[in-house]
Design a protein around this nucleic acid. Structure first.
Length: 123
DNA sequence: ACAGTGACAACAT
DNA sequence: TATGTTGCCACTG
């Protein structure tokens, strides 16, 4: 699916992840109708760093997005990975020394099709 | 217009 | 299991 505002859609959806829950890049992509755009989702979140001046972007809980294996996926950027771990722990989510989160307890169920449509309706 | 880039994911050794 | 490889896709200069 080739949507014009893919990043914005990612941000909208990520904002729906409840406090204390996490989901994966792939699941975000799938919910947006682009099941193979997981990398693009990660890219979208990285792009948030350049938009921190804007409050609406600062509200995006990017730290609640991890990879499909249940791990923080910023391994080569130690500083950012640590910040993500700190933010997750602050929400009561356990992150072990290998940056792993037990998905069976903290995975967000996600939105259904109707909810997605509604969320993306008013652009 | 197009080749390069990543905070992914699935598959293959 | 643990790495390595390959496909992917939106965005960028």
């Amino acid at each position: 699916m080739n949507t014009p505002n893919f990043y914005e859609q990612v941000y909208r959806l990520v904002r729906q992840i409840p406090y204390g829950k996490v989901t994966s890049y792939g699941r975000i992509a799938q919910m947006l109708g682009a099941p193979r755009a997981a990398r693009a989702v990660g890219y979208a979140l990285q792009a948030l760093k350049d938009k921190q001046e804007s409050p609406s972007y600062r509200e995006v809980p990017w730290h609640r997005v991890i990879n499909h294996a249940g791990r923080i996926s910023i391994s080569n950027r130690e500083f950012d990975a640590e910040e993500q771990a700190i933010r997750l722990r602050a929400e009561g989510i356990p992150v072990d020394e290998n940056l792993h989160i037990p998905l069976e307890h903290y995975l967000w169920e996600g939105l259904n099709f109707f909810e997605i449509d509604q969320l993306l309706a008013n652009s």
